[in-house]
Amino acid sequence: MTVDSSPFQPLAGTRVLDLGMNIAGPQATSLLADLGADVVKVESPTGDTSRGMEPRAADGTSAMAYAMNRSKRCVALDLRSPKAAQVLEVLLRWADVAVQNLRPGKAEVLGVDAAACHAVNPRLVHVSVEAFYPVDAGRPGYDLMVQAESGMLHLTGDAAGPPARLPGSLLDHTTGLWAAYGAAAALHGERDRVALTITMADVAQHLLGDRVAAHLLTGESPVRMGSATSVVTPLGAYPTATTEIVLGAASDTLFRRLSSALGVALADDPRFVDNAGRLAHRAALDDAITAALHNADADTWVERLDAAGVPVGQVRDLPDAVELHRRHSRTGLAPVHGVPGASVVANPLTGPAPVRGPGRVGADNRDVLVDTLGLNPDLVAKLEDSGVLA
């Protein structure tokens, strides 16, 4: 959809309680905040572990902390203390949605599992994010472990090399997206003790959907192929006289265009007459394409292939890609208020509206607990003095 420069905030008025840590849970609530939800993050008095990650902005705020906890108000509450129960109950009654991705078993200990939360507020949409399948529900797991056990890591990397981790904690982010999607959808239902559980292992298999379908059809086990694919060729990265480009000719028509643009009669070679033949003679075809591409630099080939109607792109490093995004994206980058010099990639729906940094641990205690929830200031002060609130 097209979004103008004004904020797109369909969730304005929705109240969300973030009980998570690290990436997957906080990513879900950040997406809801981007869409206008009022998100209160509850973290321990020592802060979410993301606050300790590198690198950090000039004020000491870690890039992960403000990327994953943008536009939230943060309350530092020690849920392990019995004295925190009164504050937690008020927060749960206030919220429309609660999201948690705590270590297995921890939610029950802290009283933030679905059953405990619904005992306080049956209209609450409760979302849990877990790493593994129910049979392994007690296992903690990071993105990398799920990539490994889902088959994803086995398929990633060069054919002759070891498995390669997908960058950017892709599964954490995608699982957070599913959690936000589920929460937003549930808000339109009856909201009677809604409890959603999103498992990273399920998300990983869903992302591999076409590969899983092919395996179930043929019984074959796919292998690592670098940037190539087993279903069509040529489609992948190739070196030029300077840097690498990616190109794709997934149909006979595109292959003829590629052949003409390269100045090599590949389309006339009987080995390459159709996709089945090109797959059967992949090595010879790749050698011929690589030899042709060595005759010019990457910029020249991108211009030439694009003019011929062949899908093509440059393999950019991250700084180059971010600059391209900053200059040409419809949404661009969003400055982080309260964190000098910090920016994040803007939500693709909402555009470059400024976002709020997480502030110091417990920075919003009074704003949330006294001004929003109406707790007695003296009670809040006593909880701060006792260390239950930081």
Results as ranks from 00 to 15, higher is better:
73 R>M: 12
136 D>C: 10
335 P>N: 04
92 L>T: 04
62 S>I: 01
28 A>I: 00
300 T>I: 10
356 R>C: 08
291 A>W: 07
339 V>M: 13
73 R>T: 13
52 G>Y: 07
253 T>R: 14
191 R>M: 09
74 C>S: 14
356 R>V: 08
26 P>R: 03
182 G>L: 00
342 A>L: 09
76 A>C: 06
36 G>M: 03
167 P>L: 12
321 A>P: 04
303 E>K: 09
90 V>W: 02
210 D>S: 14
63 A>P: 01
126 H>C: 14
90 V>Q: 12
31 L>T: 00
166 L>F: 04
47 G>C: 06
123 R>G: 14
72 K>V: 03
30 S>R: 13
12 A>T: 15
292 A>Q: 05
235 L>K: 09
181 Y>T: 03
201 A>N: 06
176 G>R: 00
229 T>N: 11
124 L>Q: 00
322 V>Q: 05
217 L>N: 08
173 H>I: 08
198 I>H: 01
222 P>R: 12
216 L>D: 06
192 D>M: 07
19 L>Q: 00
59 D>A: 11
251 S>Q: 09
278 R>V: 01
322 V>S: 04
192 D>F: 01
195 A>W: 05
105 G>A: 05
186 A>G: 05
92 L>H: 01
274 D>M: 06
332 G>A: 12
187 L>S: 03
329 S>V: 10
178 W>M: 06
264 V>D: 03
320 D>K: 12
171 L>H: 03
36 G>D: 06
228 A>E: 13
330 R>H: 12
197 T>C: 12
60 G>I: 15
213 A>Q: 09
120 V>Q: 09
74 C>G: 15
84 A>M: 09
213 A>H: 08
218 T>Y: 05
141 G>K: 07
251 S>W: 08
342 A>W: 02
34 D>E: 07
251 S>T: 15
386 S>T: 11
191 R>I: 09
37 A>L: 02
307 A>M: 06
76 A>L: 03
232 V>E: 06
165 R>T: 13
27 Q>S: 13
356 R>L: 14
335 P>W: 01
299 D>G: 10
42 V>E: 04
111 G>M: 04
120 V>N: 05
234 P>R: 02
271 R>Y: 02
279 L>Q: 15
82 P>G: 11
142 Y>M: 04
285 L>P: 00
366 R>T: 11
2 T>V: 15
373 L>N: 08
265 A>E: 12
378 D>G: 09
30 S>H: 08
240 T>W: 03
133 Y>L: 15
74 C>M: 12
85 A>H: 14
150 S>T: 00
317 D>R: 10
40 V>P: 01
235 L>T: 14
